[in-house]
Simulated scan of single mutants.
Amino acid sequence: MPNRFTANPPPELSNSPQGWQQRTYSISELARLFEVTPRTIRFYEQEGLLAPQRRGQTRVYTDKDRVRLKLTLRGKRLGFTLAEIREVVELYDAMPDGNLRQLNRMLEILAEKRQELRRRLEDIRLMQSELDDVEERCREVLENLKATS
């Protein structure tokens, strides 16, 4: 069963001599597909997460680039740093055991993210408690001021 972080869709069938041809995308097509700006895509390219081919001044993105962008955006939503995303993507590209290493590293990063979220949740609970205490004291002082005036 394909893993949603590693699944690379099969190239589309074509009339090429090899029988297979990858779908290509322009930067505007990818931007529209993922609802991001072309500037975002260029940023990820500068960061080494995407490597489009060039036809003159035009960037040409392959299915591999599309999947890498999808993984990058998903990783950002999950709170991964660009370095963590790059590491996971590069592990997959490192074949032949890249998929196994990638999945193990993903599990490590996910465990770290969960622990970080638990710490943040506890911090938020403590802050809420402190806010409640301050609010209660302010209301008491306000009531006392109203009673004496």
Score class of each variant (00 low, 15 high):
57 Q>H: 15
58 T>L: 13
59 R>T: 06
59 R>G: 05
59 R>V: 04
60 V>E: 06
60 V>Y: 03
61 Y>A: 03
61 Y>P: 02
61 Y>T: 03
62 T>I: 02
62 T>S: 15
62 T>P: 01
62 T>R: 05
63 D>N: 12
64 K>Q: 06
64 K>L: 09
64 K>W: 06
65 D>R: 04
65 D>K: 08
65 D>M: 06
66 R>P: 01
67 V>P: 00
67 V>Q: 08
68 R>T: 04
69 L>W: 00
70 K>P: 01
70 K>D: 10
71 L>T: 03
71 L>W: 02
72 T>A: 12
73 L>C: 07
73 L>T: 05
74 R>M: 12
74 R>D: 07
75 G>T: 01
75 G>K: 00
75 G>M: 02
76 K>N: 06
76 K>W: 03
77 R>W: 12
77 R>D: 15
77 R>T: 14
80 F>P: 01
80 F>H: 03
81 T>C: 09
81 T>N: 10
81 T>Y: 09
82 L>C: 09
82 L>T: 10
83 A>E: 08
83 A>V: 05
83 A>I: 05
84 E>P: 03
85 I>Q: 04
85 I>M: 09
85 I>R: 01
85 I>H: 00
85 I>L: 06
85 I>G: 01
86 R>W: 08
87 E>Q: 14
87 E>L: 13
88 V>F: 04
88 V>P: 00
89 V>N: 02
89 V>R: 00
90 E>G: 07
92 Y>Q: 04
92 Y>W: 08
92 Y>R: 06
93 D>P: 07
93 D>W: 14
94 A>F: 07
95 M>T: 09
96 P>A: 08
97 D>K: 13
98 G>Y: 03
99 N>W: 05
99 N>R: 11
99 N>Q: 13
100 L>S: 12
101 R>V: 00
101 R>Y: 04
102 Q>R: 07
102 Q>E: 02
103 L>V: 05
105 R>C: 02
105 R>P: 01
106 M>L: 15
106 M>F: 14
107 L>P: 01
107 L>F: 09
108 E>G: 09
108 E>K: 14
109 I>Y: 02
109 I>T: 03
110 L>E: 13
111 A>H: 09
111 A>F: 03
113 K>A: 13
114 R>K: 13
115 Q>L: 14
116 E>H: 14
117 L>C: 07
118 R>T: 10
118 R>S: 13
119 R>P: 01
119 R>S: 13
121 L>H: 09
122 E>C: 10
122 E>F: 11
